[in-house]
């Protein structure tokens, strides 16, 4: 309990609150898109709860990824670390693995030039997959 208290203090200053709010904004748009598929609305307390949960998940993910990277004697987190962090659920791990392959396939094609809009990259990537098959 003491730990969570001191964590909270550290969070409040230094703009962690700002990050939390930005996080919540993107989360709300995702959640509403998902709910629309069922013609549902998400009540405010549920949205707040999911937002807190997802934020805690992100923090835990950060700790896991750092540990995994350090365990591999690296200072940089790579895709395998993220996949490893999802090992508890086979389906999630499979989804991430296939997405990792997609991202990897895209990389040589753009010749290490990073486009700033990920949407465009997704489109060009999808086209390429069609050509290949």
């Amino acid at each position: 309990m003491d730990r969570s208290g001191s964590d909270l203090e550290a969070d409040e200053d230094e703009g962690m609150q700002l990050l939390r709010d930005r996080f919540r904004l993107s989360l709300i748009s995702i959640a509403e898109t998902e709910a629309k598929k069922y013609d549902m609305e998400v009540s405010a307390p549920v949205m707040g709860c999911v937002s807190d949960l997802a934020f805690k998940l992100t923090e835990q993910l950060a700790k896991d990824l750092e540990l995994f990277a350090h365990h591999g004697n690296r200072k940089s987190v790579n895709m395998d670390d993220v996949i490893l962090s999802a090992h508890r659920n086979e389906h999630v791990a499979t989804l991430l693995r296939s997405m990792a392959l997609e991202l990897k396939a895209k990389e040589p094609q753009i010749e290490k030039k990073r486009k700033k809009t990920p949407k465009q990259m997704e489109r060009t990537g999808a086209d390429d997959v069609l050509e290949l098959s």
Binding site: L27, A54, L65, K75, V77, N78, D81, L96, M99, A100
Partner: peptide, 21 residues
């Protein structure tokens, strides 16, 4: 400090998005 490459970050975003979805 620890760093992360861009693909790993995209993958993390996907993981969190999956959780919310």
């Amino acid at each position: 400090p620890t760093t992360a490459n861009s693909n790993a970050l995209k993958l993390s975003c996907e993981l969190i998005k999956l959780f919310v979805a």
